[in-house]
Write a protein that binds this DNA or RNA. Structure first.
Length: 504
RNA sequence: GGAGCGUUGGUCAAGGGGUUAAGACACCUCCCUUUCACGGAGGAAUCACGGGUUCGAUUCCCGUACGCUCUACCA
């Protein structure tokens, strides 16, 4: 039945930074579209002018770019269905709302927000629905003439959907199977607001139709309003043209239950946004995965595994593999608690997997920020290769490798002092001489010479290696000590030994 | 309160009528490494509970419990 080209959309409202859940929704949309050779559309749902946030839209585009999830059509990429901002499509929606009114499937309502507020306080569980609408101020109770008069007088109004009573609305969700709702349980949602803008409910349906969307994926929080959308499709465009729905499971907070929020990240010390987001009103900065030192490949991989897996046990996927293997049927029904430890593991795996040259530039920037000169590219690459196994974040490289470029500022003297004696002191003095005289400074040669000298002095090499390491590195960490010496060079090695010898 | 959705080790999860119920993260132990990591080996689940259906149920059906989402002129 479906020979149409697959077209999916992600439709964020530009009200702030894009968090984990949002990016995952993008990812699943993108993977599904690309798997089927289809298009991924980004539509900006900015129908609520009161929630507009400066910079949010640009942030969304930059996030997608960083993740490698570029839209085929959008407000900045262009496309045959422009405009892609709902605020720029305002006149379109009214037309459809009028159509619904004419068919009796919607009605004008004049109740003010204040009046409804009072109702909600007076009546427990108040809903604007079949049970209450005949006692409220709307075109159903006022009659044609009075309604037209109010409109002519410029009284503000909204347009609400006129839901049928006691009717089961059923649809098939690609993840959950058959889902059904009774219309008596849902309320007469506002379709067109008093400012003439549509609400989400009208806008999604109209734009999904106009933009020829074939599959509509969104978070599970939308499930309860699905019957409204289904009905709108039936009234306006026909169920046979409706996209297939999939409601994605939620990403939950790691402790306790409930949707993951920015607050949880702040509280537990991990990012929830893809990239740093500065709130333009408060200037508060929410740190992002990117700035924490995550590789986009790792971020995407981790997100894909949150609610989906291919059943094979494979954990590490490239974007190409994800596209090839993704299917909506293998998406979980239940929500998944976000696990930052696992996210970190993905990043360390990707740091090991990627060629160091792919993140060399970014890491060089990090070193520069720390005031360390890493202009020697050959050396940088060699060093990165040597320490990448012990880095979880890109930022770890600074801590793990700065001693290759700069003598350590603090030396863990306490780690050598207790077992220090004159014999060892003499050994290192002798070592300095030997190094100065040697022609080669290869790690293997140095190691051999070091061990022979230790034997000649009747000291176990093990007792000398730790002091040597601390002289060069400053602490008990880092790759093989002779590799370090070889890379930093003769002169620097001697200088660092002398410095610590003097301090002992 | 109502409606909807969900429930396999601490977490992510495979499996889906008959299995020793995969694997990964984290944690612990050991090995490797004369540092720290990496790597390797080992360690944990009466599949929320109660009823059915069945020769047999973690898997199918019905309840119960628990959790979550929604219940705005927000998305």
């Amino acid at each position: 039945m479906n020979t149409k080209k697959v077209r999916v959309r992600f439709a964020p409202s530009p009200t702030g930074g894009l968090h984990l859940g949002g990016v995952r929704t993008v990812l699943f949309n993108y993977l599904f579209a690309k798997h089927h050779g289809g298009d991924f559309i980004l539509r900006i749902e900015d129908t609520d002018q009161t929630r507009f946030v400066e910079g949010a839209e640009a942030y969304i585009f930059e996030t997608l770019k960083w993740c490698g999830l570029e839209p085929d059509e959008s407000a900045i990429h262009g496309g045959p269905f422009a405009p892609y901002r709902q605020s720029e499509r305002k006149p379109i929606y009214k037309e459809y709302a009028d159509k619904l009114i004419a068919a009796g499937q919607a009605y004008y309502a004049f109740d003010t927000a204040e009046e409804l507020e009072v109702k909600r306080k007076e009546i427990a569980n108040f809903q604007y629905n079949h049970a209450t609408r005949m006692s409220l101020k709307n075109s159903l109770t006022l009659g044609e003439a009075a309604t037209q008069q109010l409109i002519a007088d410029g009284v503000p109004y909204v347009i609400r959907i006129n839901l049928p009573v006691n009717e089961d609305v059923t649809f098939t969700d690609m993840i959950r199977g058959e889902v059904s709702f009774n219309t008596s349980q849902v309320d007469d949602k506002v379709l067109l607001k008093a400012d003439g803008m549509p609400t989400y409910h009208l806008a999604v349906v109209v734009d999904d139709y106009l933009m020829q969307i074939t599959h509509a994926f969104r978070g599970e929080e939308w499930l309860p309003s699905a019957p409204v959308h289904i009905l709108l499709w039936r009234y306006l465009f026909g169920l046979e043209n409706m996209p297939q729905w999939a409601h994605l499971p939620l990403i939950l907070k790691p402790d306790g239950n409930g949707k993951l929020s920015k607050r949880d990240g702040d509280r537990l010390g991990f990012p929830t946004f893809a990239m740093d987001w500065t709130d333009p009103k408060t200037n508060e900065v929410a740190t992002g995965f990117r700035e924490r030192g995550f590789l986009p490949e790792a971020f995407v991989n981790m997100l894909a595994a949150l609610g989906w897996n291919d059943g094979s046990g494979q954990e590490i996927f490239t974007m190409e593999e994800l596209i090839a293997k993704f299917s909506m049927e293998r998406v979980h029904k239940g929500g998944a608690k976000f696990d930052y430890e696992k996210a970190k593991w993905y990043n360390s795996e990707w740091i090991k997997k990627m060629p160091v040259t792919s993140y060399q530039l970014q890491v060089a920037g990090l070193f520069k920020e720390a005031g360390i000169d890493v202009s020697d590219d050959v050396k940088l690459v060699k060093v990165l290769e040597l320490v990448k196994d012990r880095c979880t974040f890109l930022n770890d490289f600074v801590q793990q490798a700065s001693f290759f470029f700069k003598a350590p500022e603090t030396i863990d003297i306490a780690a050598i002092q207790p077992k220090w004696d004159e014999k060892k002191n003499l050994f290192f003095i002798e070592l300095i001489k030997a190094i100065e005289l040697s022609s080669s400074f290869e790690a293997a040669d140095l190691e051999l010479a070091f061990k022979e000298m230790a034997a000649a002095n009747q000291i176990k090499p093990g007792e000398l290696m730790l002091p040597f390491r601390i002289m060069l590195v400053g602490g008990k960490f880092g790759p093989h000590v002779f590799d370090i010496a070889s890379i930093i060079g003769k002169e620097e090695t001697v200088s660092r030994i002398k410095k610590v010898l003097a301090a002992l």
